[in-house]
Amino acid sequence: MKGTFGAGFSQFYIPEIQRFHFPYGLTYKMGDTLYYADEIAVPFLDTPVPTVGSVWLDSIDRSTNTCVVGLHTVPDAEALSNATKAFFKNIISNASISETEKKERLAEIETQLQSRSFFHINTFGEYHMDYEKGWPLSISFQIEVQVDAQHPQVRRNVNSIRYERVL
């Protein structure tokens, strides 16, 4: 998103404010998609992962002066894979196991993450805006994290955030 922010307070509240104000200051045209570079903080990874975002105008209602702006972001696959590898390598290197076992585990991780991603993250957003006054009527966000590890079943977490105007 626009701008970069520091740690502490910022990490907790600023992303929400930033999310709320994201669509402002842009002209959207039906049929056009705008692409932008962003970052996502993955809880157990040390560094934020670069993402590619797209934003587009979904609909305009001239009778109510409202519009719907859609958003989708996905992490850069290679950067996510590298960050995940680094995370597991760090755990294995510091584990209380023999050097031989460490080498075996590291080779396993390398093989596993070469053929497929360990997890997938998708963020979808929708802004329903009163463009005449410049206030949102509602904002919906859905962040899907799918963990594709050695579980019997694929684990999927869906985090939904919804702002709704109270009249």
């Binding site: 579980h151 869906v158 985090n159 939904s160 955030i161 709704e164």
Partner: peptide
């Protein structure tokens, strides 16, 4: 303007 903000987490196994 007044808003409510609700955050929900769902977890699926398969």
């Amino acid at each position: 303007r007044r808003y409510t903000m609700v955050e929900e987490q769902l977890e699926y196994a398969g």
